[in-house]
């Protein structure tokens, strides 16, 4: 029967590249925020030594990994998850769902409510990391977008909001 055929669908290289770039930025921004922002610092202090967290896309990435190194410093640890033991694994179910999140059409809370993610790991870790991601979004995004991404746009001091933002952007780009 000629109506039957087999197809191997291709990839989505451009969307994956975009998400990979965003993940890289988010990873570096968390590293920066852990130095600059008191709340983020406190969240990481409560997490255990060597804690490693991965955010990525199913089934084959991209990923980003952030963890505490031996000196208890929060570090962006790259995009390779092989050979790492991951304490908190947040996987977006597919690249289109990741695009919805990283084009800020769906904030973390909405994406979670819509079952877009699979989270493996202890719930208290997930709670802490979601709070960190929310703070990160407020730093990195203009208010008009961040307001859609977080449930409640926080009231921050001028210094935290503007000077903090500049410092995190700067550190994310230069990487320390």
């Amino acid at each position: 029967m000629n109506e039957f055929r087999e197809v191997t669908p291709g990839g989505k290289p451009f969307k994956k590249a975009y998400v990979a770039l965003m993940l890289w930025f988010v990873g570096r921004a968390i590293q920066a925020a852990a130095k600059v922002d008191g709340d983020v610092k406190k969240e990481f202090e409560k997490l255990p030594e060597g804690f490693t967290f991965c955010l990525g896309v199913m089934p084959h990435g991209p990923y980003m990994i952030v963890g505490k190194d031996r000196k208890e410093r929060v570090k962006y640890m790259g995009w390779r998850r092989e050979g790492r033991s991951i304490d908190l694994d947040m996987k977006i179910k597919n690249i289109e769902a990741a695009i919805l999140m990283f084009t800020f059409q769906e904030g973390t809370a909405v994406a979670t409510a819509r079952d877009r993610m699979v989270v493996d790991g202890e719930v208290p870790y997930a709670c802490a990391i979601v709070r960190v991601l929310d703070i990160g979004e407020v730093y990195l995004l203009p208010k008009i977008i961040a307001r859609l991404a977080v449930k409640r746009y926080p009231v921050w001091s001028f210094g935290r909001k503007y000077i903090g933002r500049v410092r995190i952007y700067f550190r994310s780009i230069v990487g320390y």
């Binding site: 039957f4 055929r5 197809v7 969307k15 089934p59």
Partner: peptide, 29 residues
């Protein structure tokens, strides 16, 4: 539908000729 499988690493079979009144013969094929 096949577009939704891009990046999934899954291959799919497609049959797009189901007639308005399917029969046993079709099912066998």
């Amino acid at each position: 539908i096949t577009g939704a499988f891009r990046d999934s690493g899954i291959a799919v079979g497609i049959f797009d000729g189901v007639p308005p009144v399917p029969d046993l013969e079709l099912i066998r094929g």
